Amino acid sequence: MGQESQPRWLTDEEQRVWRAYLRASRLVEDHLDRRLQREAGMPHLYYGLLVQLSEAPRRGIRMTDLARQAKITRPRLSHAVTRLEKLGWVRRESCYGDKRGQNAVLTEEGREVLEKAAPGHVAAVRAAVFDNLTPEQIQQLGGICRAMEAGLDREGADLPWLR
């Protein structure tokens, strides 16, 4: 076997950084999820979907595009949108010119729920992330995240939400 088939094991420092990243990202996600559940009655995933819809033209996005943007599979998105429909926060509409396609559209009630949840969510993000960093660390974190995102975008064909 050639050199190329050998794994590039993480160094001790890379392993420490990787594990710190995993712990921090899980803690942040758990913190945001618990706070949104307590204060707004929704998981962080649903909040993110409502935000995406609120920022879309006419507050609607094609379901396949929403799944891609949210980085979730279409079945998981369909389940989430069904729950959001039952709450009255989202409705589905047929796509113009495509009988098989559907758009998810933010309702007025969904917009109001999002507006009420946003201040608490921003406070939770600030407390969990930005209040713990210096301005220099915030810039570094932004650069690190953009670099990671760019690297993963190049490998996008292997990601499940694109199927």
Rank of each mutant, 00 (worst) to 15 (best):
L159M: 15
G151N: 14
T134C: 00
G156A: 13
E155H: 14
M148W: 15
P135Y: 06
T134Y: 04
L159T: 12
P135G: 02
D158Q: 09
E149F: 05
L141I: 07
M148E: 15
P135T: 05
L152Q: 04
E155K: 15
F130E: 04
N132T: 08
I144Y: 13
A127I: 03
E155N: 13
G151A: 07
L141C: 04
L141H: 06
L152H: 05
R154P: 00
A150D: 08
R154T: 02
I138N: 03
G156D: 11
G156Y: 11
L159F: 15
V125D: 03
E149Q: 10
G151M: 12
D131T: 00
A157K: 07
R146I: 06
F130I: 01
E136T: 11
M148V: 15
A127T: 03
V125C: 10
M148Y: 14
E155Y: 13
A127W: 01
L133R: 15
A157N: 06
L133K: 14
Q139D: 15
Q137D: 13
Q139F: 12
G143M: 02
V125A: 10
N132W: 10
V125R: 00
A147M: 08
Q139V: 15
E155R: 12
A147L: 13
D153P: 02
A127L: 04
E149T: 07
C145S: 15
V125N: 03
R126G: 03
L141N: 07
G151S: 10
L152A: 10
R146K: 08
R146S: 07
F130V: 03
Q137C: 03
Q139S: 13
F130R: 04
G142K: 02
L133F: 05
R146N: 06
I144R: 14
G143C: 03
Q139N: 12
A127E: 14
A147T: 13
T134N: 04
